[in-house]
């Protein structure tokens, strides 16, 4: 049997973020290694061949799920299954809870990290759409210190983000849940562990009368990057959305999608999936917004 192994590289396991940044700066063709569940398969297939891997998972205090006065803070090396184990996320961040349950499979989720999922830049990754819909921010550290990048400006092209090669994402900041917030993530997949045919993230903020004041809608795996469906979201705000608004939002989301025909189905089918999932996710998010007091 031939064995599939990665090309040669040098492995480093630094003890601090600054040490890791130094390694990224001073070694040629270096890459961050987190859970390795995207990077190692790519290296085994020789689609990636970094000369140096900087394992950030041994850096202390980089794995946590905390709610502060203004945000839900997720440490970069928090495992995806840590989100599933968190009562805080289950109870207060249903959009994230929906998505985390449907990323890959339980074994991959035991290694894969939040930071890796949002930094990889694959339009099929599920967490980026959640972060766009929430209006989350990424705290990254590089040789010149920290900067905060809104998730909405982060994804530039397939596998291309606004992260510099010597920068490390250290924390994801999701706006703190308030009474009247509701979200949902609906994903259609061919089987467990497959990337989405299409998936839709919806996050709404409503007032006590049910008026939607803020809406975020984002789409997974129907374009070169995760996509924000701003017009669809706009259809829902400053009012109590009617059924007609929800149907219109679904249509606008389908128009925002840029799917390709591939092994997961023809483009028109995927647009239809986006339309239906958007309508269902908006209804679920509204229902949850009413229930969260």
């Amino acid at each position: 049997m031939t064995e599939v192994i990665p090309p040669e590289f040098e492995y480093h396991a630094p003890g601090s973020v600054d040490e890791a940044i130094g390694l990224l700066q001073n070694s040629g063709e270096a890459k961050v290694l987190a859970g390795g569940q995207s990077l190692l398969p790519l290296m085994k297939l020789r689609l990636a061949a970094p000369k140096t891997l900087v394992d950030i998972t041994r850096i202390p205090k980089l794995s946590y799920v905390n709610e502060t006065t203004d945000c839900l803070c997720l440490g970069a090396t928090t495992k995806i299954n840590d989100l599933n184990d968190s009562a805080l996320i289950r109870n207060r961040y249903p959009l994230l809870a929906d998505a985390a349950q449907h990323i890959a499979d339980p074994l991959v989720r035991n290694m894969g990290t939040v930071g890796g999922n949002v930094c990889h830049g694959d339009p099929g990754n599920d967490l980026p759409a959640c972060m766009l819909a929430y209006g989350a921010s990424y705290v990254v550290r590089g040789p010149k210190g920290n900067r905060t990048i809104p998730a909405q400006g982060f994804y530039q092209d397939t596998f291309v983000t606004s992260l510099d090669p010597s920068e490390i994402l250290v924390e994801v900041q999701v706006p703190k849940a308030q009474p009247g917030d509701g979200g949902a993530y609906l994903k259609m997949e061919r089987k467990v562990s497959d990337f989405a045919i299409a998936a839709v993230a919806v996050q709404l903020r409503t007032d006590s009368r049910g008026t939607v004041n803020q809406a975020g809608i984002a789409l997974t795996n129907v374009g070169p990057t995760v996509l924000l469906a701003s017009q669809a979201a706009g259809q829902l705000t400053t009012k109590k959305p009617t059924n007609a608004d929800i149907l219109a939002a679904g249509k606008l989301a389908a128009e925002a999608a840029q799917p390709n025909s591939d092994l997961r189905g023809p483009a028109e089918f995927k647009r239809g999936v986006v339309q239906t999932l958007t309508q269902r996710a908006v209804k679920l998010a509204l229902w949850r917004a009413g229930g969260m007091s």
Binding site: V4, A13, G36, Q37, L40, L107, V108, N110, M111
Partner: peptide
């Protein structure tokens, strides 16, 4: 104690 796919974990990660 956590189940993982050992074809996608480096031996050095188990150090």
């Amino acid at each position: 104690d956590v189940p993982v796919k050992s074809c996608t974990v480096l031996a050095v990660q188990a150090d």
